[in-house]
Simulated assay, not measured.
Amino acid sequence: MRVRLRGDAYDLDTSLLAESDDEVRRQLDQYAAGERQAFDLTVDYPAGHLGDVMRAMAAIPYGETRRYGDIAARMGSGAVAVGQACGANPLPVVVPCHRVVGADGTGGFSAPGGVDAKRRLLAFERGEGLDRF
């Protein structure tokens, strides 16, 4: 399912969610309006490294970030492998890969808006520039 959120497009593999597309859209609309900080959706995490990284991303609170290397150290993995899993995240925004950043900067972002979309999401969650969206 493709959704537009605060000016950017995101592709979500909703087959990994138990809830209907309408419910997913409703919660994303609430998030975009600043009315929701956490999603109440049932995620069927993939097996293996991707699923482990997705669980770690899902645990990052709204408005906060974690570094690729920090997640990697906790998982006994490497920062590059964590970054690759973030880039393969089939549920961007819902599983907040935008909250994972590099040690020296923002890091990458695989959504169509790229790193600029990631920066916009992070700024939105920090309460910056809310009227610009």
Score class of each variant (00 low, 15 high):
Ala18Val: 02
Ser20Arg: 00
Asp21Ile: 06
Asp21Trp: 03
Asp21Lys: 06
Asp22Ala: 06
Asp22Asn: 01
Asp22Trp: 01
Asp22Cys: 00
Asp22Glu: 02
Val24Asp: 01
Val24Tyr: 01
Val24Arg: 05
Val24Lys: 04
Arg25Leu: 04
Arg25Met: 06
Arg25Ala: 08
Arg26Phe: 11
Arg26Gln: 11
Arg26Tyr: 07
Arg26Lys: 12
Gln30His: 05
Gln30Lys: 07
Ala33Thr: 12
Gly34Arg: 07
Glu35Thr: 04
Arg36Val: 05
Arg36Glu: 06
Arg36Gln: 09
Gln37Trp: 04
Gln37Thr: 13
Gln37Asp: 13
Ala38Pro: 13
Phe39Asn: 07
Asp40Ile: 03
Asp40Pro: 01
Leu41His: 02
Leu41Ala: 08
Leu41Tyr: 03
Leu41Glu: 05
Leu41Gln: 05
Thr42Trp: 04
Thr42Tyr: 03
Val43Gly: 13
Asp44Pro: 05
Asp44Ala: 13
Tyr45Phe: 12
Tyr45Met: 02
Tyr45Trp: 04
Ala47Phe: 04
Ala47Lys: 10
Ala47Gly: 08
Gly48Ala: 08
Gly48Trp: 08
His49Gln: 13
His49Val: 13
Leu50Glu: 03
Gly51Ile: 10
Asp52Leu: 11
Asp52Asn: 08
Asp52Tyr: 04
Asp52Ile: 03
Val53His: 08
Val53Gly: 09
Val53Ser: 13
Arg55Gly: 13
Ala56Leu: 14
Ala56Arg: 15
Met57Ala: 09
Ala59Gly: 06
Ala59Phe: 03
Ala59Val: 06
Ala59Gln: 07
Ala59Trp: 04
Ile60Thr: 00
Pro61Tyr: 00
Pro61Phe: 01
Tyr62Cys: 00
Tyr62Met: 00
Tyr62Ser: 01
Glu64Thr: 12
Thr65Lys: 10
Thr65Tyr: 05
Thr65Ala: 12
Arg66Thr: 15
